[in-house]
Design a protein around this nucleic acid. Structure first.
Length: 283
DNA sequence: TCTACAATAT
DNA sequence: AATATTGTAG
C-alpha cells in the first residue's frame, strides 16, 4: 500500500499550523502546561504586529520536552526518503536550571567522584530527554568550577565551605550562578581524583512517582515572561519525568530508580542564606 | 565500538 | 557565558 505513504504525508502537511498560529520561537520551549504551572498567564497577544508573517522554519515538532513519546520509529523506512525527521533533527539546547543542576549534583554526590561519569550520572538522574552529551558537557564545566574552589580554599588550610557547605568564597558573582545554587558536597573539594574512594557505587534513592510533567526550563524564562516579586522564596520544585529506563540500564538494579527530591531548597534555607541566584529583581 | 575527556565551536 | 559538537585516547 504505497498509498498510505503519500497519505501520511498529506495528512501531516494539512495538520501544519498556519504561520499565524505558531508561537514565537522564543516561547517554543515553554509548553502551555509549564506556563500554567507557573501561573504565568500568558497573555501575549501583541505578537502580530508584524506585517511580515515570519517564515517559520518548521520547528520540528519534537522538542526535548518530556513528551518522550516522540522517538518511535516511524515504521516505514526504506521507503525511499531515507531520513525520517526525528532522526536528523536537533534538539533544542538544554537549559540547566537550578533544579536540574541540583539533581545532577546529588547524583554525582551519591555516586562518588569515582563513578561519577556521564553515563552513570545520566542514568541516576533519570531525567527524560537528558543525554549523555548533555551531562558530559555540564560535568566538564562543573569540574572546572570545583577546581576553582579547590584553588581558593588552598587545599591546606581549610575548609572554605565547612559547615553549611557555603561556597561563598570562590564563587564570585556572575561567574557561577548556577553552581552556586546547589551546595557542593564536601568530598568534592578534597581531591578525590584517582583516589579509591570508599563511596558506595549505587544508591537507590527513594522512589517518588509523581506524575508531574515538563522539565524546568522555566526558571530562566521567568524573568523573561513574568516578574516575580520574591522568587528566591517561592522555590518551585519540579520533579522531573522519570525515565522509563529505555536506555539499557546496566548497573542499575532498580529499574524504577527514581530520584527522590531532597527537600533542600537549593539554597541554604535552613540557616544560612546563600546568595543565590536568580536575578530576582532584575538583571 | 563505546565511553570519557578535553578542546573547540556556536 | 552556557551548551553543543568534535577530536582524541583508553
Amino acid at each position: 500500500m504505497r498509498e498510505d505513504d503519500s497519505n501520511w504525508f498529506s495528512k501531516w502537511e494539512q495538520q501544519l499550523p498556519s504561520p499565524d498560529e505558531l508561537m514565537p520561537l522564543s516561547q517554543t520551549l515553554i509548553t502551555p502546561d509549564l506556563a500554567l504551572a507557573f501561573d504565568i498567564t500568558n497573555s501575549n497577544p501583541p505578537i502580530n504586529n508584524n506585517s511580515h508573517p515570519p517564515p517559520p522554519p518548521p520547528p520540528p515538532p519534537v522538542l526535548t520536552q518530556p513528551s518522550s513519546a516522540d522517538f518511535g520509529d516511524s515504521g516505514d523506512l526504506g521507503s525511499g526518503a531515507g531520513d525520517e525527521p526525528a532522526r536528523t533533527l536537533k534538539r533544542p539546547r538544554l537549559v540547566w536550571t537550578p533544579q536540574l543542576h541540583k539533581r545532577f549534583v546529588d547524583a554525582v554526590a551519591h555516586l562518588g567522584i569515582k563513578n561519577a561519569v556521564p553515563k552513570t550520572i545520566m542514568q541516576l538522574m533519570s531525567v527524560d530527554g537528558l543525554t549523555r552529551e548533555n551531562v558530559a558537557s555540564h560535568l566538564q564545566k562543573y569540574r572546572l568550577y570545583l577546581k576553582r574552589m579547590q584553588g581558593i580554599s588552598g587545599g591546606s588550610g581549610g575548609g572554605a565551605s565547612a559547615g553549611g557547605g557555603l561556597p561563598s568564597a570562590a564563587s564570585d558573582p556572575a561567574t557561577d550562578h548556577l553552581f552556586a545554587s546547589s551546595p557542593v558536597p564536601a568530598h568534592f573539594l578534597h581531591s578525590a581524583r584517582g583516589n579509591s574512594d570508599h563511596f558506595l557505587p549505587f544508591v537507590p534513592i527513594g522512589a517518588l512517582q509523581h506524575h508531574h510533567h515538563q522539565m524546568a526550563a522555566a526558571a530562566q524564562y521567568h524573568r523573561q515572561v513574568a516578574q516575580f516579586g520574591s522568587p528566591p522564596n517561592g522555590q518551585f520544585e519540579h520533579p522531573f519525568l522519570a525515565r522509563p529506563v529505555h536506555r539499557i540500564g546496566a548497573p542499575v538494579s532498580t529499574p524504577a530508580t527514581n530520584y527522590s527530591e531532597d527537600l533542600d531548597t537549593g539554597n541554604g534555607t535552613g540557616g544560612r542564606k546563600v546568595l543565590t541566584l536568580f536575578p530576582t529583581g532584575n538583571d
